[in-house]
Simulated assay, not measured.
Amino acid sequence: MEIFLAQFIGPLVIALVLLTVGFFSGRYLEKKHYANIIARETSPDQVMVFAERLPPPILPAPVTQLVSGSVVISSDYFKRFIAGLRMLIGGRLNTYESLLDRARREAILRMREEAKALGATQIFNVKLETMSIGGRNPNSVSCLEVLAYGTAIIPRP
């Protein structure tokens, strides 16, 4: 009986240590990423983004170009562990909501940066595409890809 307990406790302690490290490091990195996103979103020289399909008529007609921004964000082991437990009982996967929020905001910021580099002032018809990478395969890392794209309006010189 003592040998069984010794064989059981060692891996359990390692698993708990890894979950604890995953929790604290994941939380720290997520807060750091959110702070970066908020700082970039609140900068005064941002390109305006609209979900409307067509821009208002402007004379002379501006130059338009497709712009996009994509990001792939991976979940940490703690979030995967908590989500696995939550899937057993059902309900919302709150641990993945922040992951999706960060990915969407980062993709939109990258799209804005591309449009700004082109000299655009506005982006219309903005769409978001999401995809889970490796979500079903237990041996792979589960990641989330978000692609934001739209039509940049570049004023004529």
Rank of each mutant, 00 (worst) to 15 (best):
S25I: 08
I73S: 02
V67G: 06
L88H: 02
R102L: 08
G26H: 06
F78P: 06
S140N: 15
L16N: 08
L16M: 14
L118Q: 08
K116C: 00
F4N: 15
N139I: 11
Y96V: 00
N139Q: 14
M111P: 09
I154L: 12
G150K: 05
R102M: 03
E129F: 10
R27E: 09
F81R: 04
G91V: 06
F50H: 13
R80V: 06
Y77C: 05
V47W: 13
I123Y: 00
L109I: 06
E52F: 07
V13I: 15
L85M: 12
L59V: 14
A115L: 05
P138T: 04
V72I: 15
S25R: 07
E97F: 04
F23T: 00
L88E: 03
L16A: 15
V13Y: 14
R105K: 11
I58S: 13
R27N: 10
K32T: 12
L59H: 14
A15Q: 09
P56D: 09
L85G: 10
L12M: 15
R102Q: 07
R86K: 12
N137A: 06
R102D: 03
A148I: 00
F78D: 07
Y149N: 00
A115F: 02
K32W: 10
A120W: 05
N125C: 08
L100K: 09
L66E: 04
L59N: 13
N36D: 10
R40E: 12
L100D: 03
S43K: 11
Y96F: 05
L118N: 05
A15F: 13
F8D: 12
F24E: 07
R92F: 07
N94D: 08
V141N: 13
N36I: 03
T64N: 09
K31Y: 09
S140C: 07
V17F: 15
A35L: 02
R156Q: 13
V21W: 07
V141D: 14
K79V: 04
I3Q: 14
L54H: 10
R27M: 11
V141Y: 08
A6F: 13
K116R: 15
A6D: 14
E30Y: 08
G135N: 12
L66H: 04
I38C: 02
A39C: 01
R40G: 00
Y34C: 05
R102I: 03
F81P: 05
S132W: 14
I73F: 13
A107H: 01
